[in-house]
Amino acid sequence: MPHEHHVFHNPPSATPAEVHAALDRGDLSGVLNAMVGTALYGDGDWKELQELHLQLLTHDDHQVSALAATCLGHIARVYRQLDEGRVVGTLRRVRSIPHLSGTADDALGDIEVFLHPRRARWRGRLWRAMRPWTWI
């Protein structure tokens, strides 16, 4: 079995319309690239992007729905704002779906770190203080 070398690249900036066009074409690779492209660069309206990725959380393809959770975390990092109650509530609900549990947890962590950095620092300090194996 030959070894394949995969090269990481950040996709170019994209719009929600490009995500929808790729979905309509059935181009999964294009969908995934466009999704990341919408969330990474801060070129769009955060509310529109938030709505797009909240909708994609329920997509039938597991890659699309899992990436939608990741993109919500990216939006929190790039824009430093979200409709936090709605997004956090939705991510907490989808954690019960096996293929979304890890990415939803990661997105919730990103949201806390980027929207509430002071609280996240204190939580980290408390966590380190509570781990008895680190006292040695």
Rank of each mutant, 00 (worst) to 15 (best):
D110S: 04
C71E: 00
T58G: 09
S101M: 00
Y41Q: 04
D60F: 07
G26K: 10
L72C: 04
A39F: 06
H6P: 10
H116L: 12
Y41E: 14
V88Y: 05
V31Q: 09
P2F: 01
M130A: 13
R131Y: 12
M1N: 04
T15M: 02
Q63D: 07
V113F: 10
G30A: 05
T15F: 01
H3M: 08
M1V: 11
I75E: 13
L52I: 09
L100R: 08
V36P: 07
R92I: 00
M35P: 13
L54H: 10
P117C: 04
Q55E: 12
L100F: 11
P12C: 02
H9D: 10
D45L: 10
P16H: 12
V78Y: 04
L57K: 05
E18I: 05
H53R: 04
F114Y: 05
R25G: 12
L54I: 12
R86P: 03
R95G: 02
S65Q: 10
G109A: 14
W133T: 14
V7M: 05
H99D: 14
P132E: 15
A120V: 07
A22H: 07
D43L: 05
V7E: 06
V19L: 04
D43R: 07
L23T: 14
Q50P: 11
Q81G: 08
R119Q: 09
A34I: 00
V113P: 08
G85I: 06
P12L: 04
R86V: 02
V87Y: 02
H74I: 03
C71F: 09
G89A: 05
V87F: 04
R118C: 03
H20D: 15
L28N: 13
P2Q: 14
L54F: 12
V31T: 03
D60C: 01
A17F: 03
H9A: 06
E84F: 04
G85P: 06
E84C: 09
G73D: 11
G30E: 08
K47I: 05
E18H: 00
D105W: 04
R128F: 09
H20Q: 11
L40H: 13
T90N: 05
L49H: 12
H74W: 10
T70G: 03
T134M: 07
D45T: 10
R119I: 00
T38D: 06
L32D: 14
G30I: 05
V19S: 10
W46Y: 15
G26M: 07
F114G: 07
E4Q: 09
I111M: 14
S96E: 10
V78H: 04
H116V: 01
K47G: 09
H3Q: 15
N33G: 13
L32H: 07
L40Y: 14
A39P: 05
D105R: 09
H3P: 13
L108G: 09
A17C: 07
N10G: 01
A69C: 02
I75N: 00
P132Y: 12
R80Y: 05
A104S: 12
A17Y: 01
L57Y: 13
E18N: 01
A69G: 06
S65R: 08
N33Q: 15
H62I: 10
V64T: 07
E84W: 06
